[in-house]
């Protein structure tokens, strides 16, 4: 069975999609990511789609699902590198990327993840000191 590799990078999981997506492959990625978030207690998931030229409603929904599920498991999700033509097409298609953070590239995505998690942790500290 074909799989998209997932790399563990500290408390983050890193995925760069370098192949053409089809439904089963996207569904496998969704399941694998959620399992790994649990296994490694990951705090953030970064998915780079800069090499992906087509995202339709199904694959888009999988990305939204990944973000929602990760959120429930206390991890934030950032999607990076979306091509302009893909972004325009998704909007026209009618898909809303709710709950998914976006960044221009992996570097900015990492920054965004760190800031999200850092801010969250600060909030927790305020609570615990009360």
């Amino acid at each position: 069975m074909e799989k998209i590799p997932i790399l563990k990078f500290g408390e983050f999981l890193l995925v760069t999609i370098q192949v053409d997506l089809y439904d089963q492959l996207a569904e496998n990625l969704e399941a694998d990511l959620i399992n790994l978030v649990r296994k490694h207690h990951s705090r953030g998931v970064l998915i780079d789609i800069s090499a992906v030229s087509i995202i339709d409603s199904f694959m888009g929904r999988i990305l939204v699902n990944i973000a929602k599920m990760s959120k429930i498991m206390d991890a934030e999700t950032v999607v990076t590198g979306m091509q302009p033509a893909v972004a325009i097409t998704l909007i026209e298609l009618g898909l809303h990327f709710e709950g998914v953070y976006n960044a221009l590239n992996i570097e900015k995505g990492m920054e965004l993840l760190r800031s999200k998690i850092y801010n969250l942790d600060e909030d927790h500290d305020i609570y615990s000191s009360e």
């Binding site: 439904d23 409603s57 302009p84 033509a85 097409t89």
Partner: peptide, 16 residues
């Protein structure tokens, strides 16, 4: 490229 992306995405929906 934009029109290509649009028609291929539309095709992807119909193929599904």
């Amino acid at each position: 490229l934009l029109y290509q992306t649009k028609i291929i995405t539309a095709a992807s929906e119909i193929v599904r």
